[in-house]
Design a protein around this nucleic acid. Structure first.
Lengths: 134, 134
DNA sequence: TAATATTACGTATTACGTAAAGATT
DNA sequence: AATCTTTACGTAATACGTAATATTA
C-alpha cells in the first residue's frame, strides 16, 4: 500500500472513471490501472466492480475510501504543518466555546494545536460570561 | 514523502540510532540513511541533529513525529479494517455512555463505526435510567 | 581504535509510457 | 463503431546492498 496508490484510488472513486482519474493525476491510464490492480492485490480485495465503462465501488472500496481520504488528509496536514513551521506562524486568533462543549470538544483540539505549534502561546482570557444566579 | 520513509523516520526517532533503526526495519543502514536524507530534502527541513554517534530530533522532527505516527497508525487501521471485513466481523458489543457525553463524544464515534462496518446493526436499547423527578 | 553515519557506485525492483488487445454500450 | 479498461513490453527512476570514506567518543 503506497500513498500514490491511495491517491489514484480516491481519484477513481471520485470521478468514477479510470480515464478521468488518470488525467487528474497526470499519469497514463494504464499506469494508474496497474497501480489500482496492485493495490487490490496487496489488500487481497477487489475495490471496484468493473461494469464495462462505468465503475462502482465494492464493499471493500466503500470501506477503504474514507480511510484513504483520512490518510491523505493527514499527510497534507503534516506537510502544511512543517511548511507553517518553516515560514513561521503569525497573526492572532480568538476561539470561543460554550462551557458544555469545552472539555470534550475544544480541549482536545487545543491540545493538538498546542502540540503542533509549540511556539504559539495560548491564553485563557475567559468570556466574562456568568450564569444567572438570581 | 513515502510511507516507508515515515516508517524509517519513526524507527530512528524511537531508537535514537540509524543502526538500530535499520536493524528493526530490516534494511541496510546506508539505505535507511539515504531515505531519511531524501525525506528531509522533500520536506525542506532537517529532521535530526547529527551529533556524532547520537541523534536528536530537531524542532521539525519533533513536529513531524506525532503526525508520522498518526499516519502510520491510520494506515494500519485501514489494513486491519479491510482484514476484518474479509474475515467477517462477529460477536456482540454493548456500549454505554452518560447522557452528557452522548452527543459530543459517543455519537461521532458510533457514526464512524457504522460507516466502517455497514453490516453491523446498531440498536439503541436505552438504559432504563431516568432522572429523579420527585 | 571502535562504533556510527555518510558517500560512491552497481544492481534489482518497479512505476511509468506507448502500443495493442479486450470488452461493453 | 466508439469509448473505456486491461495486457504486453520496453524504459527510466529509484530503493537497496556492498564497499569505501568520514567523524566522533
Amino acid at each position: 500500500m503506497e500513498l500514490h496508490q491511495l491517491r489514484y484510488f480516491c481519484a477513481v472513486a471520485r470521478t468514477g472513471s479510470f480515464t478521468r482519474a488518470a488525467i487528474e493525476e497526470g499519469v497514463a491510464q494504464p499506469s494508474l490501472s496497474q497501480q489500482i490492480v496492485k493495490l487490490e492485490q496487496t489488500l487481497g480485495a477487489k475495490l471496484f466492480d468493473r461494469l464495462g465503462r462505468s465503475i462502482q465501488l465494492t464493499e471493500y472500496g466503500r470501506t477503504l475510501l474514507p480511510q484513504a481520504l483520512a490518510i491523505l488528509r493527514q499527510v497534507n496536514e503534516a506537510r502544511s504543518t512543517l511548511e507553517s513551521l518553516r515560514r513561521g506562524v503569525g497573526g492572532n486568533l480568538s476561539v470561543g466555546c460554550i462551557p458544555t462543549l469545552t472539555p470534550y470538544f475544544l480541549a482536545p483540539r487545543l491540545s493538538d494545536f498546542a502540540h503542533r505549534f509549540p511556539d504559539v502561546e495560548l491564553q485563557d482570557r475567559g468570556t466574562g460570561w456568568r450564569p444567572r444566579m438570581r
